[in-house]
Design a protein around this nucleic acid. Structure first.
Lengths: 207, 207
DNA sequence: GTCTATAGTATGATAGAC
DNA sequence: GTCTATCATACTATAGAC
Protein backbone atom coordinates (compact mmCIF):
# COMPACT_ATOMS: atom_id res chain seq x y z
CA UNK A 1 0.00 0.00 0.00
CA UNK A 2 1.83 3.02 -1.24
CA UNK A 3 -0.90 5.29 0.05
CA UNK A 4 1.29 6.83 2.72
CA UNK A 5 3.91 7.78 0.17
CA UNK A 6 1.89 10.42 -1.54
CA UNK A 7 2.44 13.95 -0.23
CA UNK A 8 -0.56 15.57 1.40
CA UNK A 9 -2.77 17.09 -1.26
CA UNK A 10 -2.56 20.89 -1.24
CA UNK A 11 -5.59 22.81 -0.10
CA UNK A 12 -7.58 23.98 -3.08
CA UNK A 13 -9.35 27.24 -2.47
CA UNK A 14 -11.00 29.67 -4.92
CA UNK A 15 -8.61 31.85 -6.90
CA UNK A 16 -10.21 35.09 -5.74
CA UNK A 17 -9.73 34.15 -2.11
CA UNK A 18 -6.17 32.99 -2.70
CA UNK A 19 -5.48 36.25 -4.48
CA UNK A 20 -6.54 38.22 -1.46
CA UNK A 21 -4.39 36.07 0.82
CA UNK A 22 -1.38 36.67 -1.36
CA UNK A 23 -2.01 40.40 -1.57
CA UNK A 24 -2.31 40.62 2.19
CA UNK A 25 0.90 38.67 2.69
CA UNK A 26 2.70 40.67 0.02
CA UNK A 27 1.58 43.88 1.62
CA UNK A 28 3.29 42.91 4.86
CA UNK A 29 6.44 41.60 3.23
CA UNK A 30 6.89 44.54 0.87
CA UNK A 31 6.15 46.93 3.70
CA UNK A 32 8.91 45.51 5.83
CA UNK A 33 11.59 44.88 3.23
CA UNK A 34 10.74 47.23 0.40
CA UNK A 35 10.15 46.26 -3.19
CA UNK A 36 13.68 45.16 -4.04
CA UNK A 37 14.39 43.73 -0.60
CA UNK A 38 11.38 41.45 -0.59
CA UNK A 39 11.42 38.13 -2.41
CA UNK A 40 8.51 36.33 -4.01
CA UNK A 41 9.48 33.38 -1.85
CA UNK A 42 8.97 35.36 1.35
CA UNK A 43 5.55 36.33 0.10
CA UNK A 44 4.79 32.73 -0.76
CA UNK A 45 5.80 31.48 2.66
CA UNK A 46 3.80 34.21 4.36
CA UNK A 47 0.81 33.15 2.31
CA UNK A 48 1.47 29.44 2.87
CA UNK A 49 1.88 28.50 -0.78
CA UNK A 50 4.71 27.83 -3.22
CA UNK A 51 6.80 30.57 -4.79
CA UNK A 52 6.01 29.76 -8.41
CA UNK A 53 2.32 30.02 -7.64
CA UNK A 54 2.75 33.61 -6.54
CA UNK A 55 4.44 34.49 -9.81
CA UNK A 56 1.96 32.50 -11.76
CA UNK A 57 -0.96 34.34 -10.31
CA UNK A 58 0.39 37.86 -10.73
CA UNK A 59 2.65 37.47 -13.75
CA UNK A 60 5.65 39.13 -12.16
CA UNK A 61 6.96 40.55 -8.93
CA UNK A 62 6.53 44.07 -10.24
CA UNK A 63 2.93 43.40 -11.10
CA UNK A 64 2.30 42.02 -7.65
CA UNK A 65 3.76 45.13 -6.08
CA UNK A 66 1.66 47.37 -8.29
CA UNK A 67 -1.45 45.55 -7.16
CA UNK A 68 -0.39 45.85 -3.54
CA UNK A 69 0.04 49.57 -4.11
CA UNK A 70 -3.38 49.96 -5.71
CA UNK A 71 -4.98 48.00 -2.92
CA UNK A 72 -3.31 50.15 -0.28
CA UNK A 73 -4.36 53.37 -2.01
CA UNK A 74 -7.87 52.09 -2.34
CA UNK A 75 -8.13 51.28 1.32
CA UNK A 76 -6.73 54.66 2.27
CA UNK A 77 -9.13 56.60 0.07
CA UNK A 78 -12.02 54.47 1.28
CA UNK A 79 -11.18 55.10 4.90
CA UNK A 80 -11.12 58.83 4.25
CA UNK A 81 -14.39 58.79 2.37
CA UNK A 82 -16.10 56.90 5.15
CA UNK A 83 -14.81 59.43 7.64
CA UNK A 84 -16.09 62.28 5.49
CA UNK A 85 -19.50 60.72 5.11
CA UNK A 86 -19.77 60.19 8.86
CA UNK A 87 -19.29 63.78 9.93
CA UNK A 88 -20.44 65.86 7.04
CA UNK A 89 -20.54 69.35 8.49
CA UNK A 90 -17.71 69.65 10.96
CA UNK A 91 -15.23 72.47 11.17
CA UNK A 92 -11.85 71.95 9.51
CA UNK A 93 -10.01 71.28 12.77
CA UNK A 94 -12.32 68.51 13.93
CA UNK A 95 -12.34 67.00 10.47
CA UNK A 96 -8.56 66.98 10.33
CA UNK A 97 -8.49 65.30 13.71
CA UNK A 98 -10.91 62.60 12.61
CA UNK A 99 -9.10 62.03 9.33
CA UNK A 100 -5.91 61.63 11.32
CA UNK A 101 -7.52 59.00 13.47
CA UNK A 102 -8.79 57.18 10.38
CA UNK A 103 -5.27 57.26 9.01
CA UNK A 104 -3.75 55.88 12.18
CA UNK A 105 -6.39 53.15 12.24
CA UNK A 106 -4.98 51.81 9.00
CA UNK A 107 -1.91 50.75 10.89
CA UNK A 108 -3.95 47.88 12.23
CA UNK A 109 -2.85 46.34 8.95
CA UNK A 110 0.82 47.18 9.16
CA UNK A 111 1.35 46.54 5.47
CA UNK A 112 -0.94 49.20 4.08
CA UNK A 113 0.86 52.37 5.07
CA UNK A 114 4.31 50.82 4.90
CA UNK A 115 4.01 49.47 1.40
CA UNK A 116 2.60 52.83 0.37
CA UNK A 117 5.60 54.53 1.87
CA UNK A 118 7.93 52.11 0.13
CA UNK A 119 6.28 52.89 -3.19
CA UNK A 120 6.71 56.60 -2.61
CA UNK A 121 10.47 56.22 -2.42
CA UNK A 122 10.58 54.46 -5.78
CA UNK A 123 10.16 57.49 -7.98
CA UNK A 124 12.88 56.23 -10.29
CA UNK A 125 11.09 53.08 -11.30
CA UNK A 126 8.99 54.00 -14.33
CA UNK A 127 5.88 51.98 -13.59
CA UNK A 128 5.92 52.12 -9.80
CA UNK A 129 6.98 55.75 -9.67
CA UNK A 130 4.15 56.81 -11.92
CA UNK A 131 1.60 54.87 -9.89
CA UNK A 132 2.94 56.33 -6.65
CA UNK A 133 2.77 59.91 -7.91
CA UNK A 134 -0.70 59.54 -9.24
CA UNK A 135 -1.79 57.94 -5.97
CA UNK A 136 -0.36 60.75 -3.90
CA UNK A 137 -2.13 63.32 -6.05
CA UNK A 138 -5.38 61.41 -5.73
CA UNK A 139 -5.09 61.63 -1.96
CA UNK A 140 -4.26 65.30 -2.20
CA UNK A 141 -7.30 66.03 -4.34
CA UNK A 142 -9.56 64.09 -2.03
CA UNK A 143 -8.45 66.16 0.93
CA UNK A 144 -8.69 69.44 -0.95
CA UNK A 145 -11.83 68.94 -2.96
CA UNK A 146 -13.95 66.37 -1.16
CA UNK A 147 -12.87 67.19 2.38
CA UNK A 148 -12.56 70.89 1.61
CA UNK A 149 -9.34 71.44 3.51
CA UNK A 150 -7.17 74.42 2.64
CA UNK A 151 -3.92 73.85 0.79
CA UNK A 152 -2.01 74.59 4.00
CA UNK A 153 -4.08 72.21 6.10
CA UNK A 154 -3.75 69.50 3.51
CA UNK A 155 0.01 69.80 3.29
CA UNK A 156 0.18 69.85 7.06
CA UNK A 157 -1.93 66.74 7.23
CA UNK A 158 0.18 64.92 4.66
CA UNK A 159 3.37 65.99 6.39
CA UNK A 160 2.33 64.51 9.70
CA UNK A 161 1.20 61.40 7.90
CA UNK A 162 4.63 60.97 6.39
CA UNK A 163 6.30 61.39 9.76
CA UNK A 164 3.89 58.88 11.22
CA UNK A 165 4.71 56.37 8.50
CA UNK A 166 8.40 56.93 8.91
CA UNK A 167 8.37 56.44 12.66
CA UNK A 168 6.36 53.26 12.33
CA UNK A 169 8.59 51.95 9.54
CA UNK A 170 11.75 52.57 11.53
CA UNK A 171 10.16 50.72 14.46
CA UNK A 172 10.66 53.67 16.70
CA UNK A 173 7.87 52.52 19.03
CA UNK A 174 10.04 49.53 19.89
CA UNK A 175 12.39 51.94 21.60
CA UNK A 176 9.70 52.98 24.02
CA UNK A 177 10.49 50.05 26.23
CA UNK A 178 14.03 51.31 26.50
CA UNK A 179 12.60 54.39 28.15
CA UNK A 180 14.46 56.84 25.96
CA UNK A 181 13.15 60.30 26.83
CA UNK A 182 13.50 61.79 23.37
CA UNK A 183 11.85 58.79 21.73
CA UNK A 184 8.94 58.93 24.16
CA UNK A 185 8.37 62.62 23.61
CA UNK A 186 8.67 62.39 19.85
CA UNK A 187 6.23 59.53 19.62
CA UNK A 188 3.70 60.94 22.05
CA UNK A 189 3.67 64.30 20.34
CA UNK A 190 3.54 62.78 16.91
CA UNK A 191 0.99 60.06 17.53
CA UNK A 192 -1.20 61.85 20.08
CA UNK A 193 -4.11 59.80 21.23
CA UNK A 194 -3.37 56.98 18.85
CA UNK A 195 -0.29 55.65 20.60
CA UNK A 196 -2.08 52.74 22.21
CA UNK A 197 -3.56 51.60 18.95
CA UNK A 198 -0.22 51.69 17.24
CA UNK A 199 1.58 49.88 20.02
CA UNK A 200 -1.06 47.18 19.96
CA UNK A 201 -0.62 46.71 16.24
CA UNK A 202 3.13 46.60 16.55
CA UNK A 203 3.30 43.89 19.16
CA UNK A 204 0.75 41.85 17.28
CA UNK A 205 2.82 42.25 14.12
CA UNK A 206 6.12 41.29 15.75
CA UNK A 207 7.57 38.19 14.12
CA UNK B 1 56.32 45.80 -29.78
CA UNK B 2 53.59 44.68 -27.37
CA UNK B 3 53.44 48.11 -25.78
CA UNK B 4 50.02 48.95 -27.20
CA UNK B 5 48.53 45.74 -25.85
CA UNK B 6 48.69 46.71 -22.26
CA UNK B 7 45.48 48.24 -20.87
CA UNK B 8 45.76 51.82 -19.70
CA UNK B 9 47.09 51.90 -16.17
CA UNK B 10 44.33 52.80 -13.68
CA UNK B 11 44.54 56.16 -12.00
CA UNK B 12 46.05 55.80 -8.59
CA UNK B 13 44.70 58.29 -6.13
CA UNK B 14 44.96 58.41 -2.32
CA UNK B 15 42.66 56.04 -0.47
CA UNK B 16 41.02 58.79 1.54
CA UNK B 17 40.04 60.67 -1.57
CA UNK B 18 38.79 57.53 -3.30
CA UNK B 19 36.77 56.73 -0.21
CA UNK B 20 35.02 60.04 -0.43
CA UNK B 21 34.30 59.52 -4.14
CA UNK B 22 32.77 56.15 -3.44
CA UNK B 23 30.69 57.45 -0.57
CA UNK B 24 29.36 60.27 -2.72
CA UNK B 25 28.51 57.88 -5.53
CA UNK B 26 26.96 55.38 -3.12
CA UNK B 27 24.89 58.13 -1.57
CA UNK B 28 23.31 58.88 -4.93
CA UNK B 29 22.79 55.27 -5.91
CA UNK B 30 21.35 54.16 -2.57
CA UNK B 31 19.16 57.24 -2.52
CA UNK B 32 17.60 56.40 -5.86
CA UNK B 33 17.27 52.63 -5.59
CA UNK B 34 17.22 51.95 -1.88
CA UNK B 35 19.55 49.64 -0.01
CA UNK B 36 18.41 46.37 -1.51
CA UNK B 37 17.70 47.82 -4.93
CA UNK B 38 21.15 49.28 -5.36
CA UNK B 39 24.06 47.10 -6.47
CA UNK B 40 27.69 47.50 -5.60
CA UNK B 41 28.32 47.49 -9.32
CA UNK B 42 26.15 50.54 -9.86
CA UNK B 43 28.08 52.29 -7.14
CA UNK B 44 31.35 51.26 -8.74
CA UNK B 45 30.34 52.56 -12.14
CA UNK B 46 29.10 55.81 -10.66
CA UNK B 47 32.46 56.18 -8.96
CA UNK B 48 34.39 55.12 -12.04
CA UNK B 49 36.10 52.09 -10.50
CA UNK B 50 35.67 48.32 -10.43
CA UNK B 51 33.05 46.56 -8.36
CA UNK B 52 35.42 44.44 -6.31
CA UNK B 53 37.27 47.55 -5.27
CA UNK B 54 34.14 48.98 -3.71
CA UNK B 55 33.64 45.84 -1.67
CA UNK B 56 37.32 45.70 -0.83
CA UNK B 57 37.33 49.19 0.57
CA UNK B 58 34.22 48.92 2.72
CA UNK B 59 34.16 45.21 3.53
CA UNK B 60 30.53 44.70 2.55
CA UNK B 61 27.56 46.40 0.98
CA UNK B 62 25.92 46.75 4.35
CA UNK B 63 28.96 48.44 5.75
CA UNK B 64 29.06 50.84 2.84
CA UNK B 65 25.45 51.76 3.43
CA UNK B 66 26.05 52.29 7.12
CA UNK B 67 28.85 54.70 6.29
CA UNK B 68 26.65 56.51 3.79
CA UNK B 69 24.06 56.83 6.52
CA UNK B 70 26.53 58.19 9.06
CA UNK B 71 27.87 60.66 6.54
CA UNK B 72 24.38 61.88 5.68
CA UNK B 73 23.48 62.30 9.33
CA UNK B 74 26.70 64.13 9.99
CA UNK B 75 26.07 66.58 7.16
CA UNK B 76 22.54 67.17 8.33
CA UNK B 77 23.54 67.86 11.91
CA UNK B 78 26.38 70.07 10.74
CA UNK B 79 24.10 72.13 8.53
CA UNK B 80 21.74 72.68 11.46
CA UNK B 81 24.53 73.63 13.83
CA UNK B 82 25.90 76.16 11.37
CA UNK B 83 22.44 77.65 11.02
CA UNK B 84 22.08 77.85 14.77
CA UNK B 85 25.44 79.52 15.20
CA UNK B 86 24.59 82.08 12.55
CA UNK B 87 21.40 83.41 14.09
CA UNK B 88 21.82 82.87 17.79
CA UNK B 89 18.96 84.84 19.25
CA UNK B 90 16.07 84.68 16.83
CA UNK B 91 12.49 83.89 17.71
CA UNK B 92 11.32 80.33 17.19
CA UNK B 93 9.43 81.09 13.96
CA UNK B 94 12.39 82.68 12.19
CA UNK B 95 14.68 79.96 13.41
CA UNK B 96 12.36 77.25 12.11
CA UNK B 97 12.21 79.01 8.79
CA UNK B 98 15.99 79.19 8.53
CA UNK B 99 16.43 75.58 9.61
CA UNK B 100 13.96 74.64 6.92
CA UNK B 101 16.00 76.44 4.31
CA UNK B 102 19.15 74.76 5.54
CA UNK B 103 17.38 71.44 5.22
CA UNK B 104 16.20 72.14 1.70
CA UNK B 105 19.71 73.24 0.76
CA UNK B 106 20.89 69.72 1.45
CA UNK B 107 19.16 68.34 -1.64
CA UNK B 108 21.78 70.12 -3.64
CA UNK B 109 23.36 66.75 -3.01
CA UNK B 110 20.37 64.64 -3.90
CA UNK B 111 21.81 61.60 -2.17
CA UNK B 112 21.94 62.95 1.36
CA UNK B 113 18.28 63.24 2.22
CA UNK B 114 17.22 60.36 0.03
CA UNK B 115 19.61 57.82 1.47
CA UNK B 116 18.58 59.01 4.92
CA UNK B 117 14.97 58.44 4.01
CA UNK B 118 15.79 55.00 2.65
CA UNK B 119 17.49 54.12 5.89
CA UNK B 120 14.46 55.22 7.87
CA UNK B 121 12.29 52.66 6.12
CA UNK B 122 14.64 49.83 7.05
CA UNK B 123 13.62 49.48 10.66
CA UNK B 124 13.60 45.70 10.32
CA UNK B 125 17.27 45.39 9.49
CA UNK B 126 19.04 45.03 12.83
CA UNK B 127 22.13 47.12 12.09
CA UNK B 128 20.64 49.68 9.74
CA UNK B 129 17.45 50.04 11.71
CA UNK B 130 19.32 50.73 14.93
CA UNK B 131 21.53 53.33 13.24
CA UNK B 132 18.53 55.01 11.66
CA UNK B 133 16.63 55.24 14.94
CA UNK B 134 19.56 56.62 16.81
CA UNK B 135 20.15 59.14 14.03
CA UNK B 136 16.58 60.32 14.08
CA UNK B 137 16.73 60.78 17.85
CA UNK B 138 19.97 62.72 17.54
CA UNK B 139 18.27 65.12 15.16
CA UNK B 140 15.32 65.39 17.48
CA UNK B 141 17.53 66.21 20.44
CA UNK B 142 19.44 68.80 18.48
CA UNK B 143 16.25 70.61 17.57
CA UNK B 144 14.82 70.40 21.08
CA UNK B 145 17.89 71.05 23.18
CA UNK B 146 20.32 73.03 21.05
CA UNK B 147 17.81 74.91 18.92
CA UNK B 148 15.36 75.21 21.80
CA UNK B 149 12.25 74.40 19.78
CA UNK B 150 9.16 73.17 21.57
CA UNK B 151 8.16 69.54 21.20
CA UNK B 152 5.29 70.60 18.94
CA UNK B 153 7.46 72.77 16.73
CA UNK B 154 10.06 70.05 16.45
CA UNK B 155 7.54 67.42 15.42
CA UNK B 156 6.04 69.87 12.96
CA UNK B 157 9.44 70.57 11.53
CA UNK B 158 10.28 66.89 11.18
CA UNK B 159 6.90 66.16 9.64
CA UNK B 160 7.37 68.69 6.90
CA UNK B 161 10.88 67.41 6.35
CA UNK B 162 9.55 63.91 5.81
CA UNK B 163 6.99 65.16 3.30
CA UNK B 164 9.69 67.12 1.55
CA UNK B 165 11.88 64.02 1.31
CA UNK B 166 9.02 61.93 0.09
CA UNK B 167 8.01 64.33 -2.65
CA UNK B 168 11.59 64.62 -3.85
CA UNK B 169 12.08 60.85 -3.75
CA UNK B 170 8.94 60.21 -5.75
CA UNK B 171 10.13 62.77 -8.30
CA UNK B 172 6.99 64.75 -7.93
CA UNK B 173 8.69 67.93 -9.19
CA UNK B 174 9.04 66.18 -12.56
CA UNK B 175 5.28 66.38 -12.87
CA UNK B 176 5.38 70.15 -12.75
CA UNK B 177 6.09 70.28 -16.44
CA UNK B 178 2.89 68.37 -17.07
CA UNK B 179 1.10 71.32 -15.54
CA UNK B 180 -0.95 69.24 -13.12
CA UNK B 181 -2.80 71.68 -10.91
CA UNK B 182 -2.77 69.52 -7.77
CA UNK B 183 0.91 68.75 -8.14
CA UNK B 184 1.76 72.41 -8.56
CA UNK B 185 -0.19 73.44 -5.52
CA UNK B 186 1.15 70.63 -3.36
CA UNK B 187 4.71 71.38 -4.27
CA UNK B 188 4.47 75.12 -3.95
CA UNK B 189 2.82 74.91 -0.60
CA UNK B 190 5.17 72.26 0.64
CA UNK B 191 8.45 73.67 -0.65
CA UNK B 192 7.66 77.38 -0.26
CA UNK B 193 10.50 79.58 -1.35
CA UNK B 194 12.83 76.70 -2.02
CA UNK B 195 11.15 75.40 -5.14
CA UNK B 196 13.67 76.93 -7.51
CA UNK B 197 16.56 75.43 -5.65
CA UNK B 198 14.97 72.02 -5.69
CA UNK B 199 14.11 72.13 -9.36
CA UNK B 200 17.64 73.17 -10.21
CA UNK B 201 19.06 70.26 -8.26
CA UNK B 202 16.65 67.83 -9.85
CA UNK B 203 17.43 68.69 -13.45
CA UNK B 204 21.12 68.62 -12.67
CA UNK B 205 20.71 65.20 -11.05
CA UNK B 206 18.68 63.69 -13.91
CA UNK B 207 20.46 60.77 -15.48
C1' DG C 1 -5.55 25.23 -8.43
C1' DT C 2 -1.16 23.92 -6.88
C1' DC C 3 3.24 21.72 -6.82
C1' DT C 4 8.24 20.08 -8.01
C1' DA C 5 12.07 20.74 -10.79
C1' DT C 6 14.95 23.71 -12.96
C1' DA C 7 16.72 27.19 -16.24
C1' DG C 8 18.84 31.61 -16.48
C1' DT C 9 20.57 35.50 -14.60
C1' DA C 10 22.35 38.82 -11.43
C1' DT C 11 24.85 39.84 -7.45
C1' DG C 12 28.11 40.05 -3.35
C1' DA C 13 32.30 38.60 -2.25
C1' DT C 14 37.13 36.36 -2.71
C1' DA C 15 41.76 35.36 -4.83
C1' DG C 16 45.50 36.88 -6.74
C1' DA C 17 48.12 39.53 -10.42
C1' DC C 18 50.19 44.01 -11.40
C1' DG D 1 45.82 51.14 -5.02
C1' DT D 2 43.38 48.87 -8.55
C1' DC D 3 42.03 45.37 -11.79
C1' DT D 4 40.50 40.73 -13.97
C1' DA D 5 38.69 36.40 -13.25
C1' DT D 6 35.71 33.71 -10.86
C1' DC D 7 32.93 31.31 -7.18
C1' DA D 8 28.74 30.68 -4.69
C1' DT D 9 24.46 31.99 -3.78
C1' DA D 10 19.94 33.74 -4.32
C1' DC D 11 16.21 34.97 -7.01
C1' DT D 12 12.62 35.45 -10.79
C1' DA D 13 10.42 33.07 -13.97
C1' DT D 14 9.14 28.96 -16.92
C1' DA D 15 7.75 24.02 -17.90
C1' DG D 16 5.07 20.55 -17.00
C1' DA D 17 2.94 16.97 -13.83
C1' DC D 18 -1.01 16.08 -10.88
Amino acid sequence: MPASERPPAPERIPAAERREQILAAASRVFGEHGYAGATTDQVAQAAGISQPYVVRMFGSKENLFLEVLQRALHRLLDAFRVTLADGADEDAATLGQRLGEAYADLITDRGILLSLMQAFLLGNDPAIGAAARSGMLEVYRLLREEAGLSAESTVDFLAHGMLFNTLVAMRMPDDLERGDAAATELLQCSFRSKLDLVLGAMSRGAE
